[in-house]
Structures are given as C-alpha cells and as structure tokens.
C-alpha cells in the first residue's frame, strides 16, 4: 500500500469537516481540541499511518487548505 501524508494549512482551514467525512480511511479527525486563529475547529491529521495518498481530502477541501503527498523511496545516487 502506498503511504502518504497531508499538510493542513491552519490559517486556511474553516472547519467544515468535508475532509474528515470523505477520507475513506478515517485519517482526519475534527474533535474540537484545536482551533484556528479565526476560531474555527481545525481538522487534524490524526492517523498518518492509515493514509494511502489518494488525495480526496485535497479535492474536497473548499478552502484549498490541504496538500496531499505520496511518500516514495528516495532515489539513490550513483555512488551509494
């Protein structure tokens, strides 16, 4: 399984909850522990080990706060 991680921009997140609803693996939680500078309940990337880098959270985020990355093996250089 591909591994992935997401970065949530806390200044952009408005706490609508679309990312946590559409994440098929339940990686994102919105439990009211953390708040944005504007007072919105932040989405938190709580379970990085479950993420498979599908990118659905980034599509569905209306505020463009999420960037999804796939983690791949770094390319080795010639001498190593």
């Amino acid at each position: 399984m591909a591994r992935g991680e997401i970065v949530i921009d806390e200044n952009f997140c408005k706490g609508c909850g679309y990312c946590s609803k559409f994440c098929a693996r339940g990686c994102i939680e919105q439990n009211g522990d953390r708040f944005s500078p504007q007072g919105y309940i932040l989405a938190v990337f709580a379970h990085p080990e479950k993420c498979n880098a599908c990118g659905v959270c980034a599509w569905m985020c209306p505020d463009h706060a999420i960037e999804a990355y796939r983690l791949v093996e770094a390319q080795t250089t010639a001498h190593s």
Partner: peptide
C-alpha cells in the same frame, strides 16, 4: 533519509502563485 514526498493533490498553480490569504467564502 530514505523517503521523499511527491505531490498528489494540492492547491492549483493559479492559486499557488499569489499571496497566501484565506479564501473569503463562508465555511463549507
């Protein structure tokens, strides 16, 4: 040391090129 990040989905480039400000729409 051994993992690298590749962008899968993120902000479109047309948004990326400007200053960072939250989008002025209502939540949701």
């Amino acid at each position: 040391d051994h993992m690298q990040r590749q962008l899968v989905a993120g902000r479109p480039d047309a948004w990326m090129r400007l200053e960072f400000n939250p989008i002025p729409t209502c939540p949701g």
